[in-house]
Write a protein that binds this DNA or RNA. Structure first.
Lengths: 133, 133
DNA sequence: GTTGACCTTCCAGTGGGGGGAAGCCTTATG
DNA sequence: CATAAGGCTTCCCCCCACTGGAAGGTCAAC
């Protein structure tokens, strides 16, 4: 398989696949003309990577997961730990965004949004004094 | 004021303040020795920027807000629109993370996390077949 | 033989800074 | 007066995970 084929199969852009080779996540063969040649197992790996990335795992997280995936003697506890750490990162990110959202929503709500210049959003950004909300 | 003073006042690292000058968000003066000299208004702007960034506004968003802040003839509707667009971006991001979280939490839940190699997390990443959950 | 689709490598850029080097300026102290 | 400490300057590279594009090689079809 050439890169275009495996790109279609995995849903990843060819550029991304080259990048994954660069960082050592896949090691396709090379044919005599210099083209990358992907085996079934490479296509499989790339699909795996695509799904792990879609769940928000970092490249290094993907590398760890892939290593465990290929180690049939792994302990599922190791996989679970990686996933749980990632889950916590996601939770922290959601909490952070939720707090931003609350503050911003409150400000947006308080703003008339008309032709006049008075704007509690700007006032708050300028002052951020702690008053009653 | 030198950069260290205004860094303390605004809570921003000096590096960040230099970067903000680089991208044109602040224009401090220069004293004869080449040091940046910040006025009260610069310190004010930087504090404004710090708070806007803390709400997740991009540098370009900050630039727009700052421009409106300094335009006493602004219409609050313009500010509100920028804030609402940002709010929607935050909402999309939260939705995306929440979906990741749900999928991942389900997988983590299904994984025994013991010494055995069987792991639904890896199975799912490898297959992602659509079955009942 | 020539088009057009595919492939290759390499370089640069994204956002929002951070780390650190090399070198000036200022102030306090011995 | 010398020097040491700390603050300031510019400059360049690094982070992440790609993405875009240029310049050029390869292959199948017509």
């Amino acid at each position: 398989m050439n890169i275009g084929d495996v790109a279609k199969l995995s849903g990843l852009p060819a550029k991304t696949i080259r990048y994954y080779e660069d960082v050592g996540l896949v090691q396709p063969l090379r044919s005599t003309n210099g083209y990358r040649t992907f085996r079934e197992s490479d296509a499989h790996k790339l699909a795996f990577l695509g799904r792990a990335r879609a769940l928000g795992f970092s490249i290094e997280g993907c590398r760890s997961l892939l290593k465990l995936y290929e180690d049939t003697d792994r302990a599922s506890a190791e996989v679970k730990q990686i996933a749980e750490e990632h889950l916590q990162r996601i939770d922290r990110k959601i909490a952070e965004l939720t707090e931003m959202r609350a503050t911003l929503a409150h400000l947006v709500d308080a703003c008339n949004g008309d032709h006049r210049p008075d704007c509690p959003i700007l006032t708050d950004l300028a002052m951020a004094q702690e008053e009653d909300v």
